[in-house]
Every structure is written in C-alpha cells, then in structure tokens.
Write a protein that binds this DNA or RNA. Structure first.
Length: 1109
RNA sequence: GGGCGGAUAGCUCAGCGGUAGAGCGUCGCCCUUACAAGGCGAGGGUCACAGGUUCAAUCCCUGUUCCGCCCACCA
C-alpha cells in the first residue's frame, strides 16, 4: 500500500489525561469499515489461523473469555503485523443442554409450561428465537475488547454448513463401524433426563454411610452381611458376590440368598475381580443395572439386569411396594423396613465420591439404556501418536502427560443426548419392520436397526418401507465442536479456505477443556483431514477472583469484563466489588484489561485477577499517553522523514535509547515467539516506563530545549522513531491507544493503520554497547546525587553543588561533556569535574564507579542522615565483600570454579574494598569532632575546596542556630556535643562568607520554603509559600522565579512561628523525634540483620544496572 | 488410589546453579512547565522444612509438611 503522509491537521494536541472510552469506540468501527480483519484464502502471504473457541450463543462473556480473546488477538495482530495472512475465525456454540435449560427455565417462569407442552417443533422455534435475540451479545463484547476477528466468516455450530459436516462425519464413522448403537450402562442425569458422557460427570468427595445389611441364606439360618452405600439399589440386586478364596464364606458360592423386602431369590457367586475380601464384610450385593462395577460383573456371570429406577430416578414398577418413591425416599423407607425386620446390622460413616451432573449438579444415576457411541480407541491412537511425534505440541508441555494418560485410558464416547436442541441424529427407524414395545406399541429403540443417512431416506433399506422416523436424540455438543477447525472452513466441501488454513496454526483455550474439546478435535481432524488440526495447543490458566476462588454466580464474585472496560454503576456490581467501589466501577479501558490479562499469563496456574492490577495498567496507558503528549508538544513542525535514523548526528542519550529499544525489540519478539506473553508485556512496560520515560525523556530535554537546532531536530527524530516502534511493539497488547497515538505522529506511515503496518524488526546496527557503557557514569552520578538529596529530604527545587572527582580522564571528559544531563536530573546548581584532589570539607559523598561525588553540606544536607547513609553503604559493601572473600578463601572454589567466575569475584573484591575505604574516609570527615573543626572553604568559585585544618571555628555553629528557620529543630535537637547538633539535625556549616557565595542563599530559600509547606498541613500551603522565600537569598537566579517570593525576611522570622500551623514542628517532628532515639538501638539491630543486603539494592540502581548490561 | 502444579518482599507473582526482581502496598520529600493515573528517594526477603549432589543451591536430587487441581466403575 501507499505511504500516507502526515498532515498537520492530524496533530491535534492530546488531552492531558487518556480517555479510553472515546478512543476505543472510535477505532474498532474504523478498522471494521476498512476490512482490516478480513483474511483471504487466496493470499500469497504465509497463513496463520486460529479458530476462536466458540462460546455458548446465549451466554455472555466472562473473564475467561476475555483472556482467550486477549491472547488470541495478541497472536493474530502480531502475526498480521509480521506479514502473515492472519485469520481468526469467530463463532458460537449451540451448547445443547445449557441452552435448552435456559429456555426451558424461561418458559416455565413466564408461561408455566414445559417443553413437552409446546412440543418439539414449537420449542425449537423458541430456542432459535432466543438465540437470535441474545446471540449477538458475544459479538458485541468481543468488539469492545478489540478482538480482530474476521466477522465475515462467523459461524454457528448449527449453521447449515456446519450441520452438513456433522452429518457427514456421523455417517462416515457409522459406515466405518466407529459409531454404533447399543444398550449399555451409561451416566444419566435424573433431572435433565439425558445421557451424559463420562466427562460431563463431576465427582465430588462426600461423607456418606456404609450400611451393613443381612441377607438370609436360603435353606439355612445363616445370614450374609453385605455392605452398601446405596441400600435402595437392593431392589435391583441379582446376585451376591464373595471372594473365591475367602475362608469365611467357603462353600457358599452356588447357593442362594433371599433378598430381604422383596423375597426374591438370588444366587451367591464367587468373583475375585469385584470382591476385595478386606473391604467391608467381604460380601458384595450385585446390582448390574445400577452400578458400573456390578454391570461388568453381571456381564461376566450372565446375570439378569434388573432396572428398578425410571428416568427421574424414582423406583419403577419393579420396586413393588416402593414403586413411585424417589430414590432417596426409597432409601429411607427401605432402611426403616430393614431395621424393623432386624436386618440392618449397622451403619458406619463412609467417604465416597459422588458423581454430579455438570449442568445441574443432580447426582448422576447409572442407567441401562440404548445410546449411540463412538468407538474411540481407533481414533485415539493416531491422536496419541501425533503428539508423541511432536506434530502437535502442547504448551505448557506439562499437559502432554495428562493428555496421554487420558487418551490411553479412554472409554467409548456416549454421544447421544435425550434433548431437543442440537444436531438430531441422522438415523431413521422403520415403522414397518422395527420391533415394538409391548407396553406402548411404539418402536423399541433398543432393538431397532437404524437407517443411517446424510439425508432423510426415502425408504427403509431393510424392508423398503417408507414410514421412517428419525431418531429423536441429538448429538453431544462437543461432537460438532470437535469438527470446528475444519467445519468452519467449509468442509466437507474442498474449499480454498480449507486448503489455505488447515491445519490451523494454534489452538488457544483453557486447560479445562483439554479432553472435552482439544482431544476430540485431534481425533476428528486426524481422521477426516489426515492431518493434525493445529500445530500448537496453548492452554491457558483459569481466571479466578483475587482470592483465588472460582468465579461463580452463587459465590457472587463474578466480574463482568465489560464492567472493567466500560465501568459500571454500583448497583450492577457484585457485593465484593460494591464494597470496593461504592461509587461504581470506573472505566479502565480494554487496553488496560488486555494488558493485565497478558501480564498475568503464566504457565499452568490459576490467574488471580486483581482490579488494582488493572488500575496499574490503566496508569501505564496514561503514561504512554503522556509521554507521547510530551513528544508532540515538543516537535514543533518537525516531521520524521525516511532517512535512516543512524545517519543523524546523535547525542549520547539518543544512541543509548536506540540501543535499549533494540534490545527491547528483540526481547519482545523472543517472548512472543515462545508464548511468554507476560514476559513480553513486562519487557515493554519496563522499557517504556523505566527507560524511555524515566531517563530518555528527561535527558532529551537538554537538547529539545537547547539552542542547537540540529541537535534538537535529531532528538525529535529519535523521539518519534522510538515512539513509533514502541507503539507498534505494544499494539498487539493495547490496540486502541497505540493506534490513536500512532496516527498523530508526524512521520510518513507505511500504512494507514498501525494494525497493518510491520511489527518492528530487530536492527542490530542500533545496538550501541559504547553508548550504554558511556551512560553508565552519567546515570551512576545522577543516582548517587539523587540518593544524597533524597536521604536529606531536599525538595526538588533546592539546587545543590556537586564536585565530581575521577581519576579517569575519559570519565571526566564524559561527565563534562554531558553536564547538560547531570545538572537538571540531579538538581544541580553547579557542577565541578576534576581529578582526585583535596576533598571539599564537610560534604556528603557518593562513591561510584571510578568517581567520587561530593556535595557540600552548606546549609541543606542533613549531616546526621548523611552519616547514616554512609554507614549503611559501608555495611552493605562489607557484607558483600565478606561473602565473596569467604568464597575466595576456599581453595576448592579457586581451583574448580570457572576462571572467569573467580576473576570476576576478585575484581569485585578489589572494587568493593576501594569503595569501602573511600566511604570510611568520607564518614570520618563527617565525624562530629572533625566537623566542628572544619571550615568550608569552597566558597563561590573555589572549586578545590580544601580540607581545612582544624581550626575551631564555631561560627558555623552559630550560624546554624541563626539559620533561621531551619529550625524548629532546635527544640528537639537531642544533645549537642561541642556545640554541634548530634541528633538528626539539618546542620549546616554556613560560614558568613557563604552568604555571599552562590548557592547558599538558594538552599536557604529552599529550606525555608519547605518548612512552611509541610505536608502536615495538607490543605493550605498557600500562606506558607509566601513566607518561604525571603531570607538572605536575594538575587540568586538559581531560584526559580516563581518561588522566589517577595521580599523581606520578615516572613522568615515568621517561620519559627510555623509550629503553629502544625507543620513539621508539631506533626512530623514529633514522630521523628520518637524515631530518633529509637533509631539507634534499632539500627544496631538492623545492621546485623542487614548483612545480606548487597550494595546495589536500590531499585533504581538495579534497574539501570540492568539497563546497562 | 493414581497423576500434575504450587510454596520467593505485607499482597499478587517473575527468576530456576555463581548469595534475589517487578507491580501494587508502605515510609520520606515534592503539584519540577508530558503525566499527582505523576516525580525522586527509602525500607522490606534464613527464596516452606530436612537431608543430598556441587567449588557454589532459591534454582538440581530425595524426603517431609501444607495448599490447589485433574483423573479413577473405592461395595
């Protein structure tokens, strides 16, 4: 496509805060209009295809769906930007039981009717109406999330095309003998009145009882005691079993017992498989029609199978006196009767696992009935092999074993359901030649032979009769979804789509449907397409609430993803959320939700979604917005041309950020390639915030605001270049905000939307190790200075002077050259870079790599805090060096560890020791005794401040007191020693000379101003402001004008009064004080404890360390 | 009864042989002209417990204890 050049009108200034609502609504519509989601079967680009796991049509998206949509959209957008013909197929599932139940419930509530009252045809019309009414909701929700689905290919599992595929598969499997009909014991839901597959039964451990019941042996006085958890099934007993080797019951096999209550006579059989002599009494009642074990036993021994329950699990006519009773009522009655007859020996507590219906939780009843089955083993075998051979790969890999285990122990699949909503089974029974039921005269389906056919047959293949009735049952929902990877592409027609997009590239879904769905797709895909349905299966975790609990309506902890995105009034929220958001949930935007979900993605575990996290990523979006806003505000009429960025003459910061960008690009791509969405997200988060915003933008200001027009334009170019790349890297995660900003960048665009422009390629030539190395000292110096400032609680407005001494000419040259970075970022008023020499007296010091940085204390640094800081640094370094030395002292280590590791440690020791000695040195110079005797000579221009000999110059001390404001400290100053405040005092050695010196006044101003502004009095700092400036700091330009307050020192005087407002004097000081005394002891304690802390633990330092790496 | 995960900072989680990282929360200073949904600084961890392998273990092996999940026709 052509290039779309930037036009000025596009660059409206960005609003100050990002408003996702407005932006998101706008872009989705535009993408749709322009057909960007459409993938063509005829494209010559490599194809990449994902089919969306079809949600239930009548449902509504939950967070699990949002996770699915997010991950898949990331993959699709990423691939699309990488030049793939990326197809993402949307669709919905008819979800048999679930949907039918919903409609039935409504019918009952609104019209007090059952589906039988309506009849099949009418009822199905209702369901379709329902589907048409609610079926669009899913689509709209996906749009809100930004999912780039190809809506032109949307499918529904009961569409004519997909239905034809279902019939085709059924008929072919039947013809191949892989689908059969049989009367077998299956799982039956007495409430839904349908058969269920094994998977649809959920087992739960429950506390039940084991009842011991006596069965009189026929023709003797002996009684056999059986143990059972389900006494009601005794009505259907057709034998009693003992273990053949059991001495206790020797000789009984072959005799019979009289079944209590019914008087029926049943045989005693010996069966080693069923009976475990050690369990219970060693005698088992056998009920083949109501228990899977007994069923097998019944087959082995050719026992009669006596069904005593009806479809609702009530006792049927076979139950004699108990007929009509519900199974549990029957149990109760039976136990009572047994007790009355003295046959109930005892009842003991017993834990057992009970199977419940997945849909309605009703306890499932094994039931003998005619059903359709898929003979699964022949289909499972190739599906196992495909994974064994790696033709399909599961991610995380740990699922592979689970998959194998299940597939190797798989049972035939019960596919018929006694429902109305679904694919009616394409089998017809002949009314002329089928066997009839005696009772009703209807066709006896358990014995009838079906005519299986793709279309309704004209006549019966057996007798030629034409009165054919279709099998009333429908297929398991998963039968049709199992075909999804090819049925959506037009199969059984040989469409171009099928050719282009099968096998699909990735199947992305929750691990909870590995068996339900993924395994079935594998089997069907391999069988009918002769190839795996997809190359990769990515299984994501389950989304839980922030406490790790499953979200469910009954728990009331469900969070609707759309509420997170769009916000919601309080009354619409669940109770937890309502507590958290009494005013209603604020909108977070789809981008923030998506980024959150992507970040939380990690292998094989539950995802606990916390809204605080979402809020954090909303802030991230805002950060991106504002960084862009900053750029746009500072671009002037600049437009980035197509010339390579490297041809420009770049500053250190420019080169550095480009190098970092290159690394972030590689890392992001690698992470995505490996499906590490969380890592990709975190890489981008860190890069944008901690490197681009925290460092680059700040550094760039020096050239952006500078005089040099060329440098300014070059930095503008780098800004735009970086933003462009960042936005593209981020686009798959945050499609909306990235598009919105990208459209405003002044540059020529490769396409008119970011979503179809190329994903950033790594460009090794941008990597610039030299630039990263050069940034090292700059960053180190800035961080060291900030640390000093921070520990003394200096306000940002206070300018300080820094003396940097480095033995290394290169370092000195660098710092000198890039002083434009150091000064603003470290808040310097003045910077002197020299070779090592005399150190400024009474100064705070930072020992960095190949450099020492000094900040004269003159009036603003808290000496006590500074000492503390140094001690801390020393301790840390000592601890680290101690550990390493211990290692080096071990001859084995030196002998066996790789030489580079040893070398590294040696170097580290050297470095640390040098550092420690410098730190000690600096600490000593701050020793209270020393301090009293030092005088700062470093006045105004005298860079080379000298350590002044010990002259007792108390002036500073006095000054201190005199230094106004500063302090209310006075009162709390702990003891003084030799006139020097020893406690945490903002001391300042302020020789009178200082007054004339450059900085001093400034700091004073700052200090003064700060005092009043104490946060203690949150609201009004207004007055404070005024008061502040005053002091002797008249002219200093260093003082921002605005701050420089009016005139007189009068205000200053006032300052003392400050305690009144409750500023620090009152509020903060007090606590501080308390802290101080406590501090020492505590400190002592802390110190030892702190031993493990390595020197560079400060986050920023490590961040940068990383950055430098 | 099998199998699979997990146990790391107050919380949620990364890291997975060379003595620990993020986000949120906490504490301190700041409304500094991109952003207070913000900036700067700080504090916070015997990496569940016990053995073993190794020069070196949060990381590998074994066992234990707790959590969680899956599978299983345990009368």
């Amino acid at each position: 496509m052509g290039r779309f050049s930037f036009s000025k009108s596009d660059t409206t200034e960005l609003p100050k805060a990002y408003d996702p609502q407005e932006v998101e609504a706008r872009w989705y519509a535009r993408w749709m209009e322009r057909n960007y989601f459409r993938a063509e079967a005829t494209s010559d680009k490599p194809s990449f295809c994902i089919v969306l796991p079809p949600p239930n049509v009548t449902g509504s998206l939950h967070l699990g769906h949002a996770l699915t949509a997010t991950i898949q959209d990331i993959l699709i957008r990423w691939k699309r930007m990488n030049g793939f013909n990326a197809l993402w197929v949307p669709g919905t599932d008819h979800a048999g039981i679930a949907t039918q139940m919903v409609v039935e419930r409504e019918l009952k509530e609104k019209e007090k009717k059952s589906r039988h009252d309506l009849g099949r045809e009418k009822f199905l019309e209702r369901v379709w109406e329902w589907k048409n009414k609610y079926g669009n909701r899913i689509r709209e929700q996906h749009k809100v999330l930004g999912a780039s689905l190809d809506w032109s290919r949307e499918r529904f599992t009961m569409d004519p095309g997909v239905s034809a595929a279902v019939r085709e598969v059924f008929v072919r499997l039947y013809e191949e003998g892989l689908i059969y009909r049989a009367q077998k014991l299956i799982n039956w839901c007495p409430s839904c009145h349908t058969a269920l597959s094994d998977l649809e039964v959920e087992h739960e451990e429950k506390q039940g009882s084991l009842w011991h019941i006596q069965y009189p042996v026929k023709g003797s006085d002996r009684k056999l005691t059986v143990a059972t958890t389900r006494p009601e099934t005794m009505l259907g007993d057709t034998a009693v079993a003992i273990h053949p080797e059991d001495e206790r019951y020797k000789g009984l096999a072959g005799q019979s017992v009289v079944l209590p209550l019914t008087g029926r006579e049943i045989p005693i059989i010996a069966d080693a498989e069923l009976v475990d002599p050690a369990f219970g009494t060693g005698v088992v009642k056998v009920t083949p029609a109501h228990d899977f074990n007994d069923y097998q036993t019944g087959l082995r021994h050719h026992l009669p199978m006596l069904n005593v329950l009806d479809e609702a699990a009530r006792v049927n006519a076979e139950g004699g006196a108990y007929a009509g009773l519900d199974r549990y009522a029957a149990r109760k009655k039976i136990l009572e009767d047994l007790t009355a007859q003295g046959l109930l020996e005892k009842e003991e507590p017993h834990k057992l696992s009970v199977g419940g219906c997945q849909r309605c939780a009703t306890v499932v009843e094994p039931r003998l009935s005619p059903q359709w089955f898929v003979k699964i083993e022949p289909l499972a075998r190739p599906a196992i092999e495909a994974v064994e051979q790696g033709r399909t790969k599961l991610i995380p890999e740990s699922w592979t074993n689970t998959y194998f285990h299940w597939m190797r122990n798989i049972h035939d699949w019960t596919i018929s359901r006694q429902l109305w909503w679904g694919h009616q089974i394409p089998a017809w029974y002949c009314a002329d030649c089928s066997p009839r039921l005696e009772a009703t005269g209807g066709i006896d389906y358990s014995r009838a032979e079906p005519n299986v056919s793709r279309t309704p047959p004209e006549k019966c293949s057996r007798c030629g009769g034409s009165r054919l009735e279709q099998d009333p049952d429908v297929l398991d929902t998963w039968f049709s979804s199992g075909l999804w990877p090819f049925s959506t592409l037009g199969w059984p027609e040989q469409t171009p789509e099928l050719k282009t997009f099968y096998p699909n590239s990735v199947m992305e879904t929750g691990h909870d449907i590995l068996f339900f769905w993924v395994a079935r797709m594998m089997m069907f895909g391999l069988h009918f397409m002769k190839d795996v349905p997809f190359r990769t299966v990515y299984l994501h975790a389950m989304v839980r609430d922030e406490k790790g609990e499953k979200m469910s309506k009954t728990k009331g902890n469900v969070i609707d993803p759309l509420d997170i995105v769009l916000g919601a009034p309080a009354e619409q929220l669940n109770k937890n959320l309502r507590n958290k958001f009494p005013q209603g949930m604020p909108p977070h935007g789809a981008d923030a939700l998506r980024f959150t979900l992507a970040s939380l993605t990690q292998q094989g575990r539950d995802i606990k979604l916390s809204l605080d996290r979402v809020a954090g990523y909303k802030a991230f979006a805002n950060k991106l917005w504002n960084a862009s806003r900053f750029a746009l505000m500072n671009l002037g009429d600049f437009t980035l041309d197509d010339r390579s960025i490297k041809e420009r003459e770049l500053t250190l910061a420019d080169r550095w950020i480009l190098s970092r960008l290159q690394r972030a690009t590689v890392e992001t791509r690698n992470a995505l390639e490996a499906y590490n969405f969380g890592e990709a997200a975190s890489t981008l988060y860190q890069f944008l915030w901690a490197e681009f915003c925290d460092w680059y933008i700040e550094l760039a200001k020096s050239s952006l605001y500078g005089e040099d027009a060329r440098a300014r334009d070059n930095t503008r170019a780098v800004l735009v270049f970086c933003l462009d790349r960042i936005l593209r890297l981020l686009h798959p995660f945050m499609p909306f905000i990235t598009e919105e900003i990208w459209q405003k960048l002044p540059m020529s665009r490769p396409a008119d939307s970011i979503m179809i422009s190329p994903f950033p390629e790594p460009d090794a030539s941008l990597e610039d190790a030299a630039a990263e190395a050069e940034m090292g000292p700059v960053i180190a110096a800035i961080e060291g200075l900030r640390n000093i400032r921070g520990e003394s609680n200096l306000p940002p407005s206070a300018r300080i002077t820094a003396y940097v001494q480095s033995p290394d000419a290169r370092t000195r040259e660098l710092l000198e050259r890039w002083r434009g970075y150091l000064m603003p970022l470290a808040g310097l008023g003045e910077l002197r870079v020299t070779a090592p020499g005399p150190k400024p007296a009474l100064s705070a010091a930072f020992v960095g790599p190949r450099m020492e940085v000094f900040v004269p204390l003159a009036g603003l640094i808290d000496v006590d805090a500074e000492r503390e800081r140094l001690r801390k640094e020393i301790t840390r370094s000592e601890q680290e060096v101690g550990g390493i030395k211990r290692k080096l002292d071990n001859p084995n280590f030196v002998a066996k560890a790789p030489p580079d590791v040893v070398e590294k440690d040696r170097a580290r020791v050297e470095e640390l020791e040098a550092r420690i000695s410098k730190l000690r040195d600096n600490l000593n110079r701050l020793a209270p005794e020393a301090a009293t005797r030092e005088v700062i000579k470093a006045e105004a221009g005298t860079v080379e401040a000298e350590v002044v000999e010990t002259e007792d110059d108390d002036e500073d001390v006095h000054e201190i007191g005199g230094v106004e404001a500063e302090e209310e400290q006075a009162p709390e100053k702990p003891e003084r020693k030799g006139g020097i405040a020893k406690g945490a005092v903002k001391t300042q050695a302020a020789p009178k000379a200082r007054a004339t010196s450059a900085k001093a006044p400034v700091e004073k101003a700052a200090a003064a101003k700060k005092a009043p502004a104490r946060k203690a009095a949150p609201a009004k700092k207004a007055p404070a402001k005024k008061a502040a400036p005053a002091s002797k700091a008249p002219a200093k330009k260093a003082v921002p004008v605005k701050k420089a307050a009016p005139t007189s020192k009068a205000p200053v005087k006032k300052t003392p009064a400050k305690k009144a407002p409750g500023k620090k004097a009152a509020a903060k000081k007090a606590p501080a004080k308390a802290k101080v005394p406590a501090r020492s002891p505590a400190k002592a304690k802390v110190k030892p404890a702190a031993r493990k802390a390595p020197a560079r633990k400060k986050p920023s330092a490590s961040r940068v360390a990383k950055a430098r790496r």
